[in-house]
Every structure is written in C-alpha cells, then in structure tokens.
C-alpha cells in the first residue's frame, strides 16, 4: 500500500475526532482540546476543571468508543463481504448482530441498566458468540461450510433472534421498553472508560487479526476453487475469519447496540475509490468506518442539542439512501 491513501484516511479520522472533542452543547476550541488532552497526560496547561472534565471524562471515551465501534463494524463488513464474495453481506447476515441483540435485550429485561455496568456488554457478547457457534454448526455440511448454507443459516438465526427479542419486548413494562428501544436504536451515550476497557481487548484483538486474512480474501475474489488452487486453505480461512469477526462485532454491538449500515457502506465506498484489493481495503475501511462513526455521533449530539439523537438513526439516514444507490447501480451493471 502506498502511503498516500493511508495519510488521507488518517487525516479524515483525525478531523472527525477533533470535531467530536470540540463540538457539543459547550464548544471547546481545538487548541483548548489539545491542551486538555496534554493536561490529562500529566502536563500542566492550566485548563479549567470544567473543560478538562468534558474532554477527558465525557467526550474522549465516547469518541474512542465511536471510533472503535465504527472501525470494527467496517472492518468486519469488509472481511465478510470478501469471504462471501457478496457485496451486500455485513455482520447482520451472519446472525451475529441478532445474537448480540438478543443477549443484550435479555439482560435489560432482567434488570440490567442500559447505561452502565458490565452485565449488558457481557450478555451481548455471549449472545454474539452463541450465534456464531450455532451458525457454524447449522451451516456445516460434511465438514465444509458452503457459503450459501452459511448465509441461509445466518438469516435463519437472525430471524429467530429477532422473534425472541420481540417476545421480550412484548412482555416488557414501560421502563424496560424504553431502555430496550434506546439500546436497539444504537447509541454511544453509555460510553465510559470502564466500558471502553471492557470491550477494547476483544475488539482490538479482532481488528489486529483480520488484516492477516487479506491475502486469502484477495484469492477468494477468483472463487473458492480458484483460491484453493492458489494454495489458500479456504475452509480454515472461512472458519477463522467468521470467528474473529464475531468476536469483534459481538463486543462492540453489546455496548453500542446495532449501529446500522457502517459495516455495509464503508467497505463499498473504499472499494469504489481504491479498488477491491483487501490489503488496502481492510485497513482503509477500518479508518473510514471509525471516522464516519465519530462524525455521525457528533451530528447525533449537536443536531437536536441539548437532547441527542441515537447514532443509529444518523448512520441509517446516511446509509439507507446509499444502499438504495448501490442496488440501483448493481442492477444497471447486471442489465448491461
């Protein structure tokens, strides 16, 4: 990868992060943000307590959470699209998002707070892992996992999770219902250093492992048989990549809710501008996913200030039209 696309992506990410730290109900100029960050590291820049608290305790963990979630979802989306050789795949189709949702909603139903504590992320994470294992078992035919069978199993599991989630919602009282609904819309409002530390190891482990699959995913563009002829252990690649993606997605979905479209849209944008090669696609998707997620969350916080929108609504508002555009474009390509 030449350095230039990486530099451009880094610049976008940095700009989104700076904006996230300085914009909000109270505006903090970028210079003060930098001073507050340095002061947080132990240097004395004589930043007042209030500014320091806003930047270091409120906005910084939230920004990092938004970056982690968006980067992880885009990374997983790019990997799964490559694995399924299908541009419309995203973590949702594997049942992973559905499993995490069911886990988290179950926890809220039984009294976990939607805004703090470790129970919710752990429950979501457990749900995601259970879903990934169940899909793997369902989809396996004679020790192999055909992609069509994997997709169908994922869709079936997603539907099952959704139905069970529906049952819980139906049985909820008003307070539970509000918590569940808020979580389902996707939000980074529950971000805190504690939660960040809870999910970061899983997400970072997954994010560091996924780029190693780039070579195999490149070969898979030619087809599964062809990738095998090129010496790629295709079945192992599929199993590992799905597992690693589930780990990361499960972790981030459990704290942020199912933030939609980032995993679908970002890999596409990168493919449109930088080509389909995964060595470039995977790191760039992570950077742009993080940037989009941070920017969307900033919008969510300032659009209706002092209240805030769930970030899932903002990403959906950006993502849904783009999705429609993709389908139109695909239709035209198929018709041509």
């Amino acid at each position: 990868m030449t350095m230039r696309p990486a530099v451009v992506a880094g610049a976008w990410l940095l700009a989104a992060c700076l904006a996230a730290l300085s914009l909000g109900p109270s505006r903090i100029p970028p210079m003060d943000v930098a001073a507050a960050l340095l002061q947080g590291l132990g240097l004395d820049f004589r930043v007042d307590e209030r500014t320091l608290a806003i930047v270091a305790s409120l906005r910084l963990p939230r920004m990092l959470m938004a970056a982690l979630v968006g980067g992880m979802l885009a990374l997983a989306g790019a990997t799964l699209q490559g694995l399924f050789r299908n541009p419309l795949a995203d973590p949702g189709v594997l049942g992973i998002t559905g499993g995490a949702t069911l886990g988290a909603v179950t926890a809220i139903f039984f009294g976990a707070s939607a805004m703090g504590g470790a129970v919710l992320p752990l429950a979501g994470f457990a749900g995601a892992l259970a879903a990934a294992i169940a899909v793997d078992r369902l989809a396996r035919v004679d020790g192999r996992i055909p992609v069509a069978s994997l997709l169908l199993s994922g869709i079936a599991l997603e539907a099952l999770s959704r139905a069970l989630t529906g049952v819980l919602i139906y049985a909820s009282d008003d307070r539970q219902l509000r918590d569940i609904t808020l979580w389902l819309l996707g939000s980074y409002a529950g971000a805190s250093w504690d939660r960040l530390l809870l999910i970061a190891p899983f997400a970072l482990l997954s994010a560091c492992a996924l780029p190693f699959f780039a070579r195999g995913l490149d070969a898979l563009m030619l087809g599964e048989r062809e990738a095998g002829h090129l010496g790629i252990p295709v079945e192992t690649l599929k199993r590992l990549a799905v597992g690693v993606a589930a780990l990361g997605v499960g972790a981030v979905v459990s704290v942020a809710g199912p933030v939609g479209f980032v995993g679908l849209v970002v890999p596409h944008l990168v493919r449109l501008t930088h080509g389909p090669g995964h060595r470039r696609l995977i790191p760039l998707a992570a950077a742009y996913g993080a940037a989009l997620s941070v920017a969307a969350d900033t919008l969510a916080r300032i659009l209706v200030a002092p209240a805030e929108l769930p970030v899932g609504l903002v990403t959906a508002a950006i993502g849904a039209p783009f999705f429609a555009f993709l389908i139109r474009r695909e239709k035209r390509r198929l018709a041509a």
Binding site: A219, L222, G223, G231, I232
Partner: peptide, 27 residues
Amino acid sequence: AVLPQHAAVAFDIDGRAIVELGRLPHE
C-alpha cells in the same frame, strides 16, 4: 496451475489484477 471452466469474479476488478493474483503463491 488450474484453469476451471466457468470463472465468475466477485467485485469490480480489472484484468491485470486478476493475472497478478496468479503470483500469490510466489509471494
């Protein structure tokens, strides 16, 4: 090397990039 019968390629990719994938095992 193997040339299979029908080869559909995923994603928009140009001819040269496909031929270059043949070099993957020599990396």
